[in-house]
Design a protein around this nucleic acid. Structure first.
Lengths: 138, 138
DNA sequence: TCCCAAGGTAGGAGGTATTCCTATTTAGTA
DNA sequence: TACTAAATAGGAATACCTCCTACCTTGGGA
């Protein structure tokens, strides 16, 4: 959390109660919550917190690289406070999102034909499938 | 296009004028158009075609594996009629989407820890960056 | 070929996720 | 403490997409 304060200060962003709580809640959550889910959870602590604040804060945090937004195929974007390099596995049935590491992929070179395209900034892998539990209940 | 008719018939879907034109337009386009873009283009040919038909048709085509939907970080979903296995590279500046092949990745095994998770169905890679042209003009 | 039922379409209404607006409040600095 | 730029709450607005209904078309069977 200290690290978060530092990073935020370094970016010239104010440290507000709301932001701290949003980040804290996201870091604690293991289920990659959507903005709305976070809003509901946070209302327990800060009853007046607005959904807009959640969205604004999540955008700021993402822009400053403190969290990441997961573009699954759902409508709602989902978020992740884990800053380690990792990828996502989505169960298309129950919508659960699982983190995983894939170092072999991280180390691999993109195809040579892209060498002269421009500047590559990030690479996302999302795997889709049906998790064990959902497979059983089908 | 014949192949498309066959696949559509095999799925029990009727072949309508609208669907054929939507597919034809998408197959011709090289810019991975969004539904709205396709709608505008198709109105030249079929002035009364509705946006809803575009959305419905794109969903059907995607469900039957005839086209693919690209989840870039934009709001609008974009589509691609290329059925060969390929991946996407997005310029975050001009929003251009480029197709590329990455056979080494396609052949690679996902991490062992996922072996017992469930059934993997697909894997998407999206690379993000700034293309040459946009780099120059910055 | 003609008819019928299932499925598809147009057009507008409706929904949902997200963003904008603005008056008020707050954090950080002098 | 006082000031200023930035952030917030709350509601309005937007954007993308989906639903609804009445009408039309396709494809299969007589």
């Amino acid at each position: 959390m200290d690290e978060f304060e530092k990073a935020f200060r370094a970016s010239g962003l104010k440290i507000t109660h709301q932001r701290m709580e949003i980040y804290r809640e996201l870091a604690r959550a293991k289920d990659h919550p959507a903005a709305e889910t976070l809003h509901k959870r946070l209302q327990q602590k800060i009853p007046t917190i607005s959904l807009d604040t959640i969205y604004r804060t999540l955008s700021s945090l993402e822009q400053h690289g403190l969290i990441c937004r997961i573009n699954s195929r759902e409508k709602q974007a989902r978020y992740d406070a884990d800053r380690r390099r990792h990828h996502h596995l989505v169960c298309t049935q129950c919508k659960q999102i699982l983190d995983f590491q894939w170092e072999a992929f991280d180390r691999s070179e993109p195809p040579a034909e892209l060498k002269h395209w421009g500047r590559l900034l990030r690479r996302d892998v999302i795997l889709y499938g049906i998790c064990g539990k959902c497979s059983e209940s089908m």
